[in-house]
């Protein structure tokens, strides 16, 4: 979805698309850093520091590190250049940057996003008696070559958006017994879990 947005934007505003791409690369770097516990979700770090940190832990391969550094340099030159940069140069950089983004997504790390922020969870298989305190959050797990979804209990006041990157955190002081839900895609009643800890991940 992020790649589509950048491509759409490039048709009318190539420079804005380049900035968006740069932000996306930085965001995905942060997600990788948090997913590999290199960084806490509430911790701040400059993109350059993050790249160094992840290189030192061998999470990013050497040419990916070099590419990220060079991309930032080129982006900065384009933004701060006093003479007008041709659209063809910007398109070339956009093209290379998108290739870099795809490469970054090949880093073998499991990333979790919100697939559905909250659906009702029931105590019975007929889906009549709803849990009052929690709802079901459907998470989407991806790592290169694999993907799956899984549903977890989360407090009703927790507010995520579809597509948010989240941390892998559960609180086993709060455990929830057997539950069912109505699958929002197929509309079929399904078992959610037999007994699980509460999901307390936060947005990255």
């Amino acid at each position: 979805a992020a790649i589509d947005k950048i491509v759409d934007l490039s048709a009318t505003e190539p420079l804005a698309a380049l900035l968006k791409l740069s932000q996306t690369l930085e965001k995905e770097l942060k997600v990788l850093a948090v997913s590999t516990a290199v960084l806490r979700s509430n911790q701040r770090s400059s993109p350059r520091q993050l790249i160094r940190l992840m290189a030192s832990k061998n999470i990013l391969p050497p040419h990916t590190v070099e590419s990220l550094d060079q991309f930032r340099d080129v982006r900065n030159k384009i933004i701060h250049e006093s003479v007008e940069i041709s659209h063809s140069t910007i398109f070339k950089v956009l093209d290379i940057g998108l290739q870099l983004l795809k490469t970054l997504r090949q880093v073998p790390v499991e990333v979790i996003t919100v697939n559905h922020p909250g659906i009702p969870i029931y105590k019975d298989e007929d889906c009549v008696e709803e849990y009052e305190e929690v709802k079901g959050i459907i998470l989407y797990y991806t790592s290169p070559g694999t993907e799956m979804t899984k549903i977890w209990p989360v407090r009703k006041n927790v507010d995520f958006q579809k597509g948010d990157y989240v941390t892998k955190d559960w609180d086993c002081n709060y455990q929830w017994g057997q539950a069912w839900y109505i699958d929002p895609v197929t509309d079929k009643k399904k078992i959610a879990w037999t007994g699980v800890c509460e999901f307390v991940g936060v947005r990255v």
Partner: peptide
Amino acid sequence: VELESNVEQLRETVEKAERESL
């Protein structure tokens, strides 16, 4: 000219990074 050479260098490095990730 400097920018163009930087872009070309970037393209080569990203290609290496892509091969490295396979």
